[in-house]
Each structure stands twice: as C-alpha cells, then as structure tokens.
C-alpha cells in the first residue's frame, strides 16, 4: 500500500478550525432565525439541541471507551432540580434553574464518579444503569415530588428580566442555543487539550497511559462529571421547555435513547450529537403522528445497520466524503 504521506512541517495552526466556524455560524443563524420559526419548529429544535447536549456528554464518555446506560440519572436530576426550584420556592428564572440543574448533576457525578471510574465495559454500563434505576425507584414512591406523575414547571424570567408572553418562548430557545453552543465549543476545545486527548488513549490502552504518568481514573472521573453536567443541563432545558418532569426521565429506556442517538451520530465531531438528535426528534415526531407502533422498530433496525455498516455513525459519512 502506497499511502501518501502528509508532511507536517509547521506546527498545527492554533486559530479557528472548521468545527468552530460551523458552530459560530449555527449560533448566529439559529439566534437570528429563531423569532421567525413556527412554534412547533422552535419547540422541536429546543428539545433536539437539549438532547444533543446530553448526547455530547455521551460522546465524551464513548471517546473514553465507555458506554453509559444511565445518563438518564443526570438528565432526570437536572430536570427535577429546575422543577423543584419552581415547584417549592416559586423561582422561575431560566438561568437560576439551569444553574441548579448543573450543580446537582455535577455534585452527584463527582461522588458517583469516584466509584464508576473503576469500571469498564458492561460493568460500567450496568452500574450506571443501577444508579439511574435507584433514582427512578425513589422518585416513583416520593409523593412530595408527584410520584409517577411528576409535576409541572415553567420559567418566566431570564437572569432577572421578566419576559412576558411574547418573548418567553424565544428566550428559552435562545438560551438553549447558547448553552448548546457553549457546550459544543467547550468540549471541542477540551478534546484537543492534553487531558482531552487522553480520552482516545485510554480507550485504546490504559496500561500505556498509566505508564506515561497520567492517571486513567482521574481522566475518566473528570470526563464523567463533564458528561453528567451536560446531561443535567440538557434535562433542565427539556424540563422547562416541555413544562413537566416525571420519573420516566430516569428510567433506563430514556438512557437507551441517548445511547441510540450517540451510536447513530458517531463520535467523530462535537457537531454530530446535535445532528443526530435533530434527526431523531424529527423522525420521532412524524413517526408518533403516522405510525406510533413502528417507531422503535425503525430505531432498532437503524441501530443494527449503523453498528454493522457504519461503525463511525452518521458523522463518518461526512469525513469519508472529505477524504475522497
């Protein structure tokens, strides 16, 4: 095989790369186009971007070689944290609610991460599943939090500014867009840092990473907390935009859907989860409408096809074309 060798005679450029440019463009377009969008489209994009944020965390874990069947734990915690502020204290500020989502998810992950950082493969999947099912089990029996029904919530202000009927929707949308942008940009930068690069190294060979003087457990712990924080914020955003939270958010099938989107998207780029989540949400809303009993069938078949024929996920279609 005669592969052409790309000669890198200069240090890699430090400036803005293609991903950053796409991210910035998406940020501007979405913020500007937002007010023009019909209500249903805005809602769908809202949920897609929020789910994309959750799946972005999955991407980070999968880059590290870990598949979590329990991200629903943090998704649900984030949603309940935002909801509880409104429900119990009457706080209805988007910023404050999201901060609570982030803080609760990060705090719980910091503790559980100490344990989970020791686990790999199916044991990581199982233990993360057990933790999310514990939360599910607790919530369905907690009448103060509405048991199986959950409870409603809504946001009225953004950073203290009262929004009024007309801008409420857009403010939430804009917040979601900005949060998704920051998350994607942050993770993108993180992945090209020393610590971030260790993710792929750990996936390939933990022993060597330790023999280079880096702590595998510490990196996994940090990545786990980041992933959980993203899931928490995503949960908070979804809770606010749907206006309702319930224990189903912690049930393992919710985590399973995140896994699905992550596999569908691929881990090639931080843009992939958002693309995957948007496709997922659009297909889901049409499928619910026209053929509610074949939705999971579509998911399952798609998943098998991706695993067998497109192991890099949808994103690898783009990179393949670029290389050709």
């Amino acid at each position: 095989m005669n592969q052409t060798v790309s000669i890198q005679k200069r240090p890699p450029a430090q400036g803005t790369d293609r991903t950053t440019i796409v991210l910035l463009a998406a940020l501007v377009v979405l913020l500007v186009a937002g007010p023009l969008l019909p209500r249903w489209a805005m809602f769908m994009l809202n949920v897609s971007l929020s789910w994309g944020t959750v799946v972005l965390g999955m991407l980070l874990l999968m880059r590290t070689g870990l598949v979590s069947f329990g991200q629903g734990l943090y998704y649900c915690l984030g949603a309940y944290a935002a909801g509880a502020l409104h429900h119990f204290y009457g706080i209805a500020d988007i910023m404050v609610m999201l901060l609570a989502s982030l803080a609760l998810a990060a705090a719980v992950a910091a503790v559980l991460g100490l344990l989970l950082a020791k686990y790999r493969s199916i044991f990581f999947a199982m233990l993360s599943l057990a933790f999310s099912m514990i939360l599910f089990g607790l919530l369905v029996k907690t009448s103060a939090l509405g048991s199986t029904d959950g409870f409603g919530l809504s946001a009225k202000t953004l950073a203290g500014i009262t929004l009024g009927e007309r801008w409420e929707r857009y403010a939430l949308f804009a917040t979601t867009v900005v949060v998704a942008f920051c998350a994607a940009f942050g993770v993108h930068r993180y992945l090209s840092s020393h610590q971030g690069r260790l993710a792929g190294a750990i996936r390939d060979n933990e022993l060597r990473v330790e023999y280079m003087g880096a702590s595998v457990r510490r990196v996994i712990h940090v990545n786990y907390v980041i992933a959980a924080s993203l899931a928490g914020i995503g949960g908070g955003l979804v809770g606010i935009s749907i206006g309702h939270v319930d224990p189903e958010m912690a049930f393992w099938t919710t985590s399973g859907e995140f896994v699905f989107i992550a596999i569908l998207s691929g881990t090639g780029s931080v843009l992939a989860p958002f693309l995957g989540a948007t496709i997922f949400e659009s297909v889901r809303s049409f499928a619910y409408e026209y053929s509610p009993n074949t939705w999971q069938l579509i998911l399952g078949v798609t998943m098998l096809l991706v695993i067998m024929f497109l192991p890099g996920g949808l994103w690898s279609v783009f990179t393949r074309r670029k290389a050709a």
Binding site: V259, G300, V301
Partner: peptide, 13 residues
C-alpha cells in the same frame, strides 16, 4: 449489548 438493545427495540414493536 448495543446489538441486543436494537433487537429489544425491534421486538417491542
């Protein structure tokens, strides 16, 4: 696990 999860989804429907 992911493959059998896909089977789970298919069998559900």
């Amino acid at each position: 696990v992911l493959v059998t999860y896909a089977v789970f989804l298919i069998l559900e429907d």
